[in-house]
Design a binder for these strands. Structure first.
Lengths: 156, 156
DNA sequence: ACCTGAAATGAGAATGATTGCCATTTTAAA
DNA sequence: TTTAAAATGGCAATCATTCTCATTTCAGGT
């Protein structure tokens, strides 16, 4: 685990980097330059990024390596793959690393995805309700996903 | 609108059929035999179905027609396209027709999707919280989507 | 620093869900 | 019925993603 973080809003880049190294090591993977650049690109994004957005952010990352390394990073629990409604998968740093459980505002017109957080009280209410529903259906709950679909400021 | 339904849990097939006809008519589309078979197939499913599942349900539907007609039906607001985390899009009848706002339990192992409903109180709490978050981000909210990810009874 | 085998890389080929095309069939309305 | 427009279905094309493999980089022992 990372050292106690006090009340800072975000883990520092350095701390995240250390965490990533640990997570990769746990699945016998190296934290190479390409993977570092990938993590950096995702850190800069305001929300989950598509492969193309990552490519645009960092010209030196070949597409095949982006795909392969995002798969490795996902396997290691470093990134999360997000599927919205358009044809492009998106990736963001795992909540484990950002320390922010959050959800997504998805623009149905341009596809952009923006993060938001829910009030803790609402989140707990939701969790309970979901646990109940899962139990009833014989599901073992692992995670949940809440998206708001709408139009972003630019697409109204 | 459909006639007042009293307290029945489901719209009858006939009523749904009428609604579909109206919705298609509104976008100048015909309610052909193939489209009727598609709607029937979706009505039988316990949750959203993939193209393959629909094909399996009704041998007489050619794949290209399934794709094309699902697109038409979605355009008309008859069906909703669901994207989970696997590689297959899924389709279900629009909530407008089933009269049940619901969410999905998604098995991360086999991909099966099962419907469930949330308590009205929780749903309202959620709506308010989402409206607030949307406003803050300059989004115009249109819909929301809540999925529980976990393991189904068979995949534990 | 130098080997050396294993892991990672990157360019391009292959895969596969989805979409587009078009000749034929069906439909609705005159 | 005739007829023009819409729908169909088989197949080709598209395109995000995955696979392949020859080359490069890495880690760890010397």
């Amino acid at each position: 685990m990372a050292p106690a973080a006090g009340n800072v809003a975000h883990m520092s880049e350095a701390v995240i980097d250390d965490e990533v190294a640990v997570l990769l090591d746990a699945v016998d993977q190296r934290y190479t330059t390409g993977r570092r650049r990938l993590v950096a690109a995702l850190q800069e994004g305001v929300g989950p990024l598509t492969i193309n957005e990552i490519s645009a952010t960092d010209e030196n990352l070949p597409q095949s390596s982006i795909y392969r390394n995002l798969a490795v990073l996902e396997e290691a629990g470093v990134v999360t793959r997000i599927v919205t409604n358009d044809d492009f998968a998106r990736y963001e740093l795992a909540e484990k690393l950002t320390a922010h459980h959050h959800h997504h505002l998805i623009c149905t017109a341009c596809g952009i995805v923006v993060d938001f957080e829910l009030d803790g009280r609402v989140e707990r209410t939701l969790d309970q309700a979901l646990a109940g529903a899962a139990k009833e259906a014989g599901f073992t709950p692992m995670d949940h996903r809440l998206d708001l679909l709408g139009l972003c400021r630019d697409c109204q």
